[in-house]
């Protein structure tokens, strides 16, 4: 609880900054409206207007909070918590693609890392491609993945998950290569003195040693997966998902909707990364590596 005061102070400062920015950015439109109506605005009226516009350049925090409430909690209270207007529904759509992409990406990343650590040819031939894959902007490749997969009859969840996988396997490969190589030469020599097989060395030494690296990679990978899923939703024509909400919001100038979707995405990311952090703490503590 000692941390509470500084945390709240920072939060208050951010909110104050946000409100101030809302005034600065939205004032022009309020002034224009007033001029057109032939009136002049007093300062309090101007401020009140900048914080309550329908399509502000920057919505005020309470407007976003109200929009989030209206599309989450309020709908749950009405018993429509999972209707197509609910952010819970859109979050679930995005989450399912994120989770599938994350699982696929983690599996691919670990498999590649094992290949790279155990096989010099794979190390030399695959690693450059792994790095090259991440230099291509995801926004450029995402529509192509969607189009190509759609052409072969795959649509819906999987194409989005593929984009998530594309982004999330990379940190897992890099982390796990480092992790699987983390045992000291002495520990590997020791396995040799016991004449241990490669599989025994892997399961009993290399894999447990790599756990701290794996969890760090998983956190980065999870955040990347979410970005991938949202990007994957953009070119699909904005049907459902947080990405679709962002796109629809920008089509119709619904800045409040954009911001509420953004904050929902950030919350989702925080929860998912936090969950991994929790599993990490428990696992590493039990392994005596924390």
């Amino acid at each position: 609880m000692r941390n509470l005061v500084p945390v709240l102070t920072i939060l208050a400062a951010l909110l104050a900054l946000w409100y101030a920015a809302a005034v600065a950015l939205n004032a022009q439109w309020a002034q224009d409206q007033a001029t057109r109506a032939g009136t002049t605005l007093t300062l309090p009226a101007l401020v009140a207007d900048t914080w309550s516009q329908d399509k502000p350049k920057l919505p005020a925090p309470h407007q976003v909070a109200l929009e989030i409430w209206n599309t989450t909690g309020a709908m749950v209270l009405e018993g429509r918590g999972f209707s197509k207007r609910s952010l819970f529904y859109h979050s679930w759509i995005t989450f399912s693609a994120t989770a599938l992409g994350f699982v696929l990406g983690t599996a691919l990343g670990i498999a590649l890392a094992i290949g790279i650590v155990y096989n010099r040819t794979i190390d030399m031939s695959v690693m450059p491609w792994v790095i090259a894959s991440q230099t291509i902007p995801i926004l450029a490749i995402a529509p192509m993945i969607i189009v190509v997969l759609n052409a072969v009859g795959i649509s819906g969840l999987l194409p989005k998950a593929m984009i998530s996988m594309y982004l999330s396997f990379f940190p897992v490969v890099v982390g796990m290569v480092k992790g699987l190589r983390s045992p000291a030469p002495m520990q590997l020599d020791q396995m040799r003195t016991w004449s241990a097989s490669a599989a025994q060395t892997f399961w009993r030494l290399r894999l447990p040693s790599s756990m701290p690296y794996l969890f760090t990679s998983l956190k980065v990978g999870m955040a990347a997966s979410l970005v991938g899923a949202i990007v994957g939703e953009l070119p699909t024509g904005a049907v459902a998902g947080l990405g679709a909400r962002l796109l629809a919001g920008s089509y119709y100038g619904q800045t409040i909707q954009i911001w509420s979707a953004l904050i929902m995405a950030a919350t989702l990311a925080a929860v998912l990364v936090g969950l991994i952090g929790l599993v990490q703490r428990i696992t590493l503590k039990r392994m005596g590596m924390a």
């Binding site: 000291a184 520990q187 003195t193 016991w194 392994m287």
Partner: peptide
Amino acid sequence: KSRAYGYVFQAAGLYPW
């Protein structure tokens, strides 16, 4: 290969887990 010896290194090298 026939596990004829035990080897003790300078560091204990126990697995923390």
